[in-house]
């Protein structure tokens, strides 16, 4: 079987798998960003229990393996009455894990905003919430975009693990095709190329574009 014949036969399944991977990535990314912002801000809270909660969250999700977390969410949580579809369990696990890493990016970016900005906002008598929303966060956002680009690529790659709970993503399809055809090089090679294209030709250019747009909006371009 030539590679073209292989593609003609199994191409559609790679496309389906890639679509599931893309959807997992987008949903996990949305969740990760929401968690990252919430936990990043909570890590900076003056309220000790709030700060403590966020620290524990970040420690647990960064300190243990994504695969174990995925299994917990899919196999163990049902024992406590929380049952999720495998598709949901997949992006929730990835999103919660990467959200913990993102929280540190958010926290770092907020701390990187010069002290003078806080003081100027206070001198204008802005409330703490307004200071954060109007002055600090927009500047932190710009600063955290480049590392978020890397994190989203990690997130895309992380979604491959959801194949282990039988979500029919790109990796799952590749494994299936491999086990029926034994054409390992073709099956996994194709998956490899698709992952690469998604990260380097979709995520990276998108993030670069976003950085440019935001920089222009903020008068930094």
């Amino acid at each position: 079987m030539s590679y073209f014949e292989f593609l003609a036969e199994y191409g559609p399944r790679f496309v389906d798998g890639a679509a599931v991977t893309a959807l997992q990535t987008v949903l996990a990314a949305v969740l990760a960003i929401a968690i990252a912002v919430a936990m990043g801000l909570m890590r900076l809270s003056r309220n000790v229990p709030v700060r403590w909660f966020a620290t524990v969250y970040v420690e647990i999700f960064r300190g243990t393996s994504l695969l174990v977390q995925l299994y917990w969410i899919f196999f163990v949580l049902p024992l406590f009455g929380i049952t999720m579809e495998k598709f949901t369990a997949g992006f929730v696990a990835v999103g919660m894990n990467l959200g913990a890493y993102g929280a540190e990016l958010v926290r770092g970016a907020i701390l990187s905003v010069p002290k003078g900005q806080w003081e100027a906002a206070l001198a204008l008598n802005m409330s703490p919430a307004k200071r954060m929303v109007r002055v600090i966060f927009p500047q932190a956002f710009l600063a955290m975009l480049p590392p978020w680009g890397n994190l989203l690529i990690e997130l895309l790659k992380g979604t491959a693990l959801v194949s282990l709970i039988s979500v029919a993503d790109l990796m799952f399809e590749a494994k299936q095709i491999n086990s029926t055809t034994f054409l390992s090089a073709q099956a996994f090679g194709t998956a490899l190329v698709i992952y690469y294209v998604m990260s380097r030709f979709l995520i990276t250019p998108f993030m670069r574009w976003l950085e440019r747009v935001m920089a222009r909006k903020m008068g930094r371009a």
């Binding site: 010069p114 003078g116 900005q117 100027a120 206070l122 008598n125 927009p138």
Partner: peptide, 17 residues
């Protein structure tokens, strides 16, 4: 605080505005 305004040595303008 509404009574008081301050200008700083390093201006501290909001760069995104």
């Amino acid at each position: 605080r509404a009574n008081i305004g301050m200008c700083f040595q390093h201006f501290n303008l909001f760069p995104h505005m």
